[in-house]
Amino acid sequence: MKELSLNILDIAQNSIHADATLVQILLDETDESLTLSIVDDGKGMSEEFVSRVTDPFSTTRTTRKVGMGLPLLKLAAEQTGGSLAIESRERTLYPEDHGTKVTAFFYKNHLDFTPLGDVVSTVVSLVQGSPDVDFLFRHTFPDHTVELDTREIREVLGEEVPLSSPDVLVWIRETLTEQYEGTDEEDE
C-alpha cells in the first residue's frame, strides 16, 4: 500500500465484516514512533485462527484463498523495525465482551516507513460505506489531538438522517481537516 491510511481502511473493513457496532481507530504519535490500534466489538477470532492469520495463506473467505490485509499491515510495521499484535475474543466464548484489537507499531524515522497519507479520506470512506456502524477516530500528537466520534454526530442528527448523507460527509471531512490544520489559523 502507498499510504498507511489505506491499510487502516482495509483493516477497519475487517471489523465491519465481523459485525462490529463500534470501530475505534487510534493513532498515537511521538517524535520517533507511530502506534496504530484498530479495536472492534465484532465477532472475534479463535486463538488458533489468530495465530495464523498474519500468514498470507489463511482466510475464511471462499472467493479466494489468500487474505492479504493483515499480512500487508504486518509487513509495513516490521519493515520499520516495528511489530504487529492481534488480540481477539470470540463471541461464542465471550458473549459479553468479544472483539478484536489489532495493534501495529512503527518507527517513523526508518527509511521504509510508509507515510500515513490521507487518513481523513479513510474516515470519510468508512462512514460512507457503513453509516450504521459507529467510529471513534482519535489521532494523538504530543501537543494536540484530532478526534471524531460518530456517536456524537448521530445524537445530533437523530434517526432520520443517515451519516452517509453528502452534507454530513462534507462536515466530517471539514471538521477533521480543520483539526489537523490547527484551530488557531486565520480565516481564509
Partner: peptide, 14 residues
Amino acid sequence: MKSLEELKKIREKM
C-alpha cells in the same frame, strides 16, 4: 471551527 450547530442545520434541512 466546524460545530455541532452546523450539524443541527444539516438535520433541519434534511
